[in-house]
Design a protein around this nucleic acid. Structure first.
Lengths: 141, 141
DNA sequence: CTAGGTGCAAAAGGTTTGCGGTTAA
DNA sequence: TTAACCGCAAACCTTTTGCACCTAG
C-alpha cells in the first residue's frame, strides 16, 4: 500500500544507479499510455506537448536509460527508425503488411526453440528476437 | 551440362530484367567465397582488390539488385550496418556474444511457429525473421 | 537508340557526442 | 560538492540520390 507505482519505478531506476527525472518519467508515461510502438521522434513530439523545452537528444538519452534499466524494449525492424515498447513480457512483434501496425505476440508458456530451429550441438542460446510479417486479423477480413 | 553455373546466374538476373555486370558478378562471388556475413563496406573492400575502380555506391546498388533478384539475403542486426548472406535456404541467424561471429541456423523441416508463439486468431503469418544470441560451440568450451 | 549501370560527390536520415550549464543526493 | 542530467549544436555512420558518362541489347 505504501509503495505506489511511482515509487516502484523510482526504485527500478535507482537500482540501476539512475535518477527518475521529469523527462524520463514523461517519456515512460507516453510509452505506457499509447502502446503503438512509437519512434523516438514520435515520443519526442508527444512529450513536447507536456514538456515544451525537451530536446530530441534528451528523448534519445531517456529512451536509452529506460532500455538499460530494463523498463523499455527497443524494437528494430529493418533499417527503419527504432521503435520503443514498454511491454516487459517476453514477446515478439508482428508487422501487418497492409496497415503497418506493430502487434505484440506472446510466446507459448514453455516454448521450445528446438522445435523450430536446428540448433547445432554446443551452442548456448540465451535469447532470440523475432519479427513476423503478414496481415493482422482486421486486414485479413 | 550445357548450362554452367554462370549461365544459371545470368538467367536468374535476366529473369528479373537485370544485367549480369562484372561488378554484380564479383559482389556475388565475394559473398559466395567467404560466407562470414560481411557488411557492404567489407564487400566493397574485397571487391576493390579485384576491381579497383568500383565505388561503394555501386556495391550498395549491386547488393540491392542481388537482394531483389533473390540471390542474396540482407541481414539486419540491431542498428548495425546490414550484412549480406548468399544462403538461400530458409534459416535464422545466431550471433555469438563472445566472438561476434554470425552463424546460419537452419529451421526444422516442418517447423510450426504456433509451437513457439501464441498467434492471435485471424492473423496470417507469411514470414518471420529471427536473430538469436548466445555463445557458439567454440566459445562455450 | 535507349534503358539500365557505373562512379562520384553530396545529401539524407537516424542516432550519438561534446560541452557548458543545471540539479538532485 | 559532485556525479548525473539537460539542451543545443555539431558530428557521425550508414545508406540513398542526382547527375554525367558509359555500355549492352
Amino acid at each position: 500500500m505504501i509503495h505506489s507505482a511511482k515509487n516502484q519505478l523510482e526504485e527500478s531506476m535507482q537500482h540501476a544507479g539512475r535518477r527518475l527525472t521529469p523527462q524520463r518519467r514523461e517519456v515512460l508515461e507516453v510509452l505506457l499510455s499509447q502502446r503503438d510502438h512509437p519512434t523516438a521522434v514520435e515520443v519526442f513530439l508527444r512529450v513536447k506537448s507536456r514538456i515544451p523545452s525537451i530536446s530530441l537528444a534528451t528523448v534519445y538519452n531517456c529512451l536509452e536509460t529506460l532500455v538499460k534499466s530494463g523498463l523499455v524494449r527497443q524494437v528494430n525492424v529493418e533499417r527503419d527508425a527504432s521503435r520503443y515498447c514498454p511491454n516487459l513480457q517476453e514477446h515478439s512483434h508482428f508487422i501487418c503488411e497492409k496497415c503497418g501496425k506493430v502487434f505484440d505476440i506472446p510466446l507459448q508458456p514453455q516454448a521450445k526453440p528446438e522445435s523450430v530451429w536446428q540448433i547445432p550441438k554446443g551452442f548456448k542460446l540465451t535469447s532470440f528476437e523475432t519479427t513476423m510479417r503478414g496481415t493482422c486479423s482486421h486486414c485479413s477480413k
